[in-house]
């Protein structure tokens, strides 16, 4: 964790920012382990810059968000997705979390619209497995099928959903 050379003000600032950055990263990766690692990595990069006074006071929050976002891009690139480098010089205060609120709402709407096109079986298996978090075995019991059939059903359901989303230009950073 962060400790050496961190002043009280800086510690306070980090304490305030940490939950926000974590929430932003979690939103993207959807699991605690990766979100914690990436948040920590983001602060590891930002803290030396703050200590050296290289970030303007009014831009600290935006700079940290942007660093987290760039780390996510690095991660996606390693996973064969589409990395785009961001110019850290041109960051405006206000952060990315706020600026993406609208985007999040749009994503939600596009997704819900796409889900409506799926059959009831497909909707049910996605809901039980992903939204409710049931295991394959539990989902199989609830839907009166065997686990193998559930794995196939969820695969087909998500493929259908992916295709609908792709038609709508959904996949991006």
């Amino acid at each position: 964790m962060i400790s050496a050379g961190v002043t009280r003000d800086l510690e306070e600032l980090i304490g305030d920012l940490w939950p926000e950055i974590y929430r932003f990263v979690y939103y993207k990766v959807q699991n605690k382990e990766e979100a914690e690692e990436l948040t920590q990595d983001a602060f590891k990069r930002v803290i030396p810059k703050l200590q050296e006074g290289k970030v303007e006071e009014g831009k600290v929050r935006a700079y940290t968000f942007q660093t987290a976002r760039n780390l996510l891009k690095d991660l996606w690139r390693r996973r064969g997705r589409d990395p785009q480098m961001v110019d850290l010089e041109n960051i405006q205060e206000g952060g990315l979390w706020e600026s993406t609120r609208e985007e999040r709402q749009e994503e939600k709407m596009v997704l819900e619209e796409a889900m409506a096109f799926l059959s009831e079986d497909y909707q049910q298996v996605i809901n039980l497995r992903i939204v409710e978090g049931y295991s394959v075995k539990e989902t199989a019991l609830k839907m009166g099928r065997n686990p193998g059939a559930i794995r196939s059903l969820q695969y087909r359901a998500l493929q259908s959903l992916r295709e609908i989303l792709e038609e709508r230009g959904f996949f991006h950073d």
């Binding site: 959807q30 999040r104 997704l111 819900e112 992903i130 939204v131 998500l158 992916r162 989303l165 996949f171």
Partner: peptide, 21 residues
């Protein structure tokens, strides 16, 4: 992970995100 599978993964994340929103 290949591109197609990554898109399936992103679909799963997106479904979860609607819930987190």
């Amino acid at each position: 992970v290949d591109e197609e599978t990554e898109k399936l993964f992103e679909t799963v994340r997106a479904v979860r995100r609607t819930q987190s929103t």
